[in-house]
Design a protein around this nucleic acid. Structure first.
Length: 358
DNA sequence: GAGGGTCAAGTCCGT
DNA sequence: ACGGACTTGACCCTC
């Protein structure tokens, strides 16, 4: 397959859509209802367990139906945005309790399976027709290597759930098809990188073909995860790297960027960006990159600095994203979701237009 | 409808 | 020892 034309740059928000403050939402409830329509929900396993068989089945089906419809609305919204914004991280709550004993038997029933399979197939087609790049990022419980065999088995099952969902969306064969991926962290200190690499043999080919591994802020930084780059694409989180390295911002010409690109083996990489919370930085110059040493000295803990902001308030970081877009797409990990990613994309769009005009 | 306890899960950091 | 952070605060019951 020839790759003469590289795909266009993309950035997007993660999991949850936040509606604009709209005068049409005259009450708080109206705003909440608007958000509910666009976002995936869930049901607790404890609640499901308390219900009788018929109600239990109905409740799960209701949530799944809602989630399929909400995901389709999210993708339709993203597809209607400018090409730069056509990327979405999907919420893991799509099929609640898929690997939990309370819900698992229900997912085995033909009627629910058919509902899910037909729904996801249509949603995947819609994403591809709309040029929307999709990903998932399972929670911290999804680890493929742990000293606790039970935790490891649960983690692998959780990864397989994400891979199955991707497969039903139409991304089930080949190396990160259309850039689709399921991104996780290395996990605990032990068995670490080597355990992670060994356990790649324990997961399905579909999951291996979708998997990516991200540098974290403490145990497994960029250099550590690049040791997996021969097997698995590396997702570079610039904010994690800043925290882990105590203040380093990578530029696109940094040699390790080439190693990250190589790890994706022909697929356009995805990276993550976020910034420390606005509240920690009342006097910070939004035009300068956050200064880890200075913030640390003025009393901000490692944990505080690692936490994410609501919006992409720092213009220097935004400019850094614009530079890195030359080689990578971006997931914007801000608490304000689309309220952060849309203005960021607009700023970058203006920057690109300006560069062309100049 | 608001308020508050509860929720499947691993691991680390800070107190 | 325990709460918070991370993936993401939502869900569900009671009043």
């Amino acid at each position: 397959m020839a790759r003469e034309t590289s795909p266009p740059p993309r950035l997007g928000f993660c999991c949850t859509f936040i509606p604009d403050a709209d005068p049409a939402h005259r009450t708080l409830k109206a705003a909440k209802d608007a958000a509910k329509l666009m976002n995936l929900g869930t049901v607790t396993m404890a609640h499901l367990q308390r219900l009788g068989p018929a109600e239990r089945r109905q409740k799960l089906e209701d949530v799944v139906r809602h989630n399929l419809a909400a995901l389709e609305r999210q993708i339709a919204w993203v597809a209607a945005r400018p090409p730069l914004e056509r990327l979405l991280r999907m919420a893991s709550s799509l099929l609640p309790g898929y690997t939990h004993p309370t819900a698992m038997p229900l997912y085995a029933e033909t009627s629910l399976r058919t509902l899910i399979e037909t729904g996801l197939a249509r949603i995947g087609e819609r994403a591809r027709a709309g040029g929307v790049r999709l990903s998932m990022h399972p929670g911290p419980f999804c680890i493929i290597a742990s000293c606790n065999p039970n935790a490891q088995a649960n983690g692998i099952a959780e990864l397989e759930y994400h891979a199955e969902a991707m497969a039903m969306l139409g991304y089930g064969s080949g190396w990160h098809p259309q850039g689709a991926h399921v991104n996780i962290h290395v996990g605990g200190r032990e068995p670490g990188i080597d355990g992670f690499r060994e356990n790649l043999s324990l997961i399905s080919e579909t999951a291996r073909n979708l998997l990516t591994v991200e540098n974290d802020e403490s145990l497994f930084g960029l250099d550590a995860v690049l040791r997996l780059g021969e097997r698995i694409p590396v997702v570079l989180d610039l904010h994690h790297h800043w925290v882990e390295s105590r203040g380093a911002y990578l530029e696109p010409d940094e040699p390790r960027i080439q190693a990250v690109i190589a790890s994706w083996r022909g697929v356009r990489p995805v990276s993550h960006i976020s910034v420390s919370r606005e509240s920690l930085l009342p006097d910070h110059d939004p035009a300068a990159l956050p200064d880890y040493a200075a913030l640390s000295e003025s009393g901000h803990s490692w944990r505080d600095l690692a936490a994410h902001s609501d919006l992409m308030w720092n213009e220097a970081v935004n400019a850094l994203v614009a530079r890195h877009l030359a080689w990578s797409d971006f997931e914007i990990e801000a608490k304000g979701k689309n309220q952060a990613s849309v203005p960021l994309a607009a700023g970058i769009g203006r920057r690109l237009t300006g560069a062309l005009a100049a």
